[in-house]
Simulated scan of single mutants.
Amino acid sequence: MFALVTEKAYGQHRSYFDALDNEDHGLQWLRLADDGVLHGPSNAHPEVGWLSSDVFFGGLIDRFFEIVEAAPEFRWLQSAAAGVDLKEYQRLMSRGARMCNAHLTAIPIAEFVLRAVLDVFQDAGRWRAAQAEIRWEHHNFREVWRSRWLIIGLGAIGAETARRAQAFEAHITGVRRHPTGDEPVDAMISPAEMPAALPEADVVVLAAPATPETENLVDENFLSAMKPGSVLVNIARGKLVDDEALLRALEGDRLATAILDVFNTEPLEPDHPYWTHPKVVLTPHSSGGGIGRWDRGAELFCDNLRRLLAGEPLVNEVSSMQLLTTDLPFALGSQ
């Protein structure tokens, strides 16, 4: 069986591939280099492939799918991303190929949220400023302990965030349209019940996908219902927030801070008010950048490849129904 991976992923995770080779599955590796050249036996076509993170960010995605779609016997794709909305996925599955997605960034995003909220609650900038000015200065700060969190979207990212906030003994209310019953929260409510929960929340985390139903979810009414001094965190998609409404709300006393990692336009325009607003903490869509996601991706690919060869159920297999229902709000994580 020929398996398609990138040259970079093959080199970075060689131990995982060597372990598969030692198990004598009869695998041969087709390696896609950064320049688009495919290394391996000539005229070979892959049957399986790993769409690793470097494909998305290294400019190889078109070349990767060109190879896959030209392979007449291609039967399984492992993606490093959670999203399943690429048209190439639909084309592959319409041919009978199977596909699995991944939730590799849930851990770093959840860690990012806790770090960012702690930074705001503790007003850590005052310590950094005092150190820079060589001043020995104390200040009091808010605690996460017994704070109340509203997490909108309880997919992989929302759930990982909830677990970490609970470790600080925060009270977590989750919002999800179709609860499974095992979410790591203290209370679960439906989207219809969300407005009543906003006035109680010290921290509101947006972790839902961008859909027609969630576009501009955070509007004038949403913001006016939030608790005075609360913190808004958006690690979902920029489309969930009405920027003009948020800027107006930040001029008042209701929101203490908006922690924003995603925006309606990316990169964010250089003259956008968010850059210099004193109540905005801005990062360039980087909350999922934890390097542990690379090893987790390799482990998942190799585990699923073993399962495929053994005829066992695959982890995170995507159904054709999921491709048709990715617009259901609160059903999946956002990244």
Rank of each mutant, 00 (worst) to 15 (best):
A110S: 15
M99G: 01
E143L: 05
Q122A: 09
F65S: 00
V68H: 05
Q122I: 04
F64S: 00
A116N: 04
V68L: 06
R95N: 12
I107V: 15
R63C: 06
R91F: 08
R115V: 08
W145E: 11
D85V: 05
N101W: 07
L86E: 10
I109L: 10
R126Y: 04
A129K: 13
M93H: 08
A81E: 00
A129Y: 03
E73Q: 15
T105Q: 12
R91N: 13
D119K: 03
G83H: 07
D123S: 14
C100D: 05
H139Y: 07
V117T: 11
A80K: 03
Q131I: 08
G153W: 04
A130C: 07
Q122N: 08
D119S: 09
L114E: 14
I67D: 05
I151P: 00
H139E: 07
S94H: 12
A82Y: 00
K87D: 15
I157R: 01
W127G: 00
L86S: 13
E66T: 14
L154N: 03
G155A: 10
R75W: 04
E66S: 15
F74H: 00
A132E: 14
A130M: 01
I134E: 13
V144K: 00
E143N: 09
R91I: 07
K87E: 15
F65R: 04
I157H: 02
A82F: 02
S94A: 15
C100G: 08
L92E: 04
R63N: 06
W145G: 01
Q131A: 14
V117E: 05
I61F: 02
N140R: 08
Y89C: 03
A124F: 09
I107Y: 06
F64A: 04
A156N: 14
A156Q: 10
F112C: 06
H138K: 12
A124Q: 12
R142A: 14
M93N: 12
A102I: 10
E66H: 14
A80I: 00
A71H: 02
W136G: 02
W149F: 13
L86M: 15
D123R: 15
